[in-house]
Design a protein around this nucleic acid. Sequence first.
DNA 1: TTAAATTATTTCAAATATAAAATATCTAAG
DNA 2: CTTAGATATTTTATATTTGAAATAATTTAA
Lengths: 160, 160
Amino acid sequence: MTASQEMLKADKTTDDKSRVRLWLRLLRASRAIEGELRERLRTTYNVTLPRFDVMAALYREPEGMLMSQLSKYLMVSNGNVTGLIDRLTTDGLVQRTLRDGDRRTSVVLLTKEGRENFEQMAASHREWINELLSHFSPDEAESLAETLKVFASDWEGEAR
Amino acid sequence: MTASQEMLKADKTTDDKSRVRLWLRLLRASRAIEGELRERLRTTYNVTLPRFDVMAALYREPEGMLMSQLSKYLMVSNGNVTGLIDRLTTDGLVQRTLRDGDRRTSVVLLTKEGRENFEQMAASHREWINELLSHFSPDEAESLAETLKVFASDWEGEAR
DNA sequence: TTAAATTATTTCAAATATAAAATATCTAAG
DNA sequence: CTTAGATATTTTATATTTGAAATAATTTAA
């Protein structure tokens, strides 16, 4: 093995540890927060986290979203979205509407009840996040968010 | 509304935005990475991510772990762990052994096959993480990991 | 000792999740 | 027009996940 190969290997190993550690921390942080939010949504509003996530996505788009848009935005499979929307529709929180041009697609949007329902939950949700992330000052939060921004565009864009 | 109440409300709103944005970024980052790792584990080793996670936890503890320890460490429900261990046991990667003192508990550990199997996957897993987090320098990764460390101990400890 | 409370795990039902296959529709080349 | 390919969604089979209830074993307290 050449000296430069040795060097390469040494660097690689160093990188390994810090990046793997970062990933494990990232994963634990999001699992911990997600678990806490799931629990609070359930006990306070009797709603599951996936349903809340879908409603949050739809709330941001008053014109509605396609199933495929929802799937991509939430980073879950198509079949998963179908089931979630089915159940939310049954409960009158969401509705599917036909589109003019393309009969393959249907636009999904919140019903009036769904919108009102979500607004209540969203207020609590914001407060809970502020509580759970209170360890970070607004400035720290801003800066950390900026650091993590890369994942929304970097390799994700081309890979998916 | 008094002046101090106005002030309070203004601060609250500011905090809201940055911390919520941070949470959404954190969530998207971990979902993106998790999805990519899941896909690669599936196509390369025909293993699911939850099974890999269980094996990773057990690999760190050669003496084995209790079901409840696994559940707490992975932050998933008890019932979930039971099913995963059942399937891993069926496939010969994991085994349950009786304990001397307490007949309610059983110690779960990797079989020789499970250990060898995991070592192969873990090497790829490390490389993939370094690739996916290559945007961060080792120093940045180290520092970011330190920042996120708080979630492993802060409010999580008392809440669960 | 014995009943009550606690602890560890499993079982259960329902929801969520994935990936692959099937279905339906649209688009475009000829 | 017609058909091959692309696109959007649903269906299917299986696995994962949760939370609650059930089971089993241990510990505690009277």
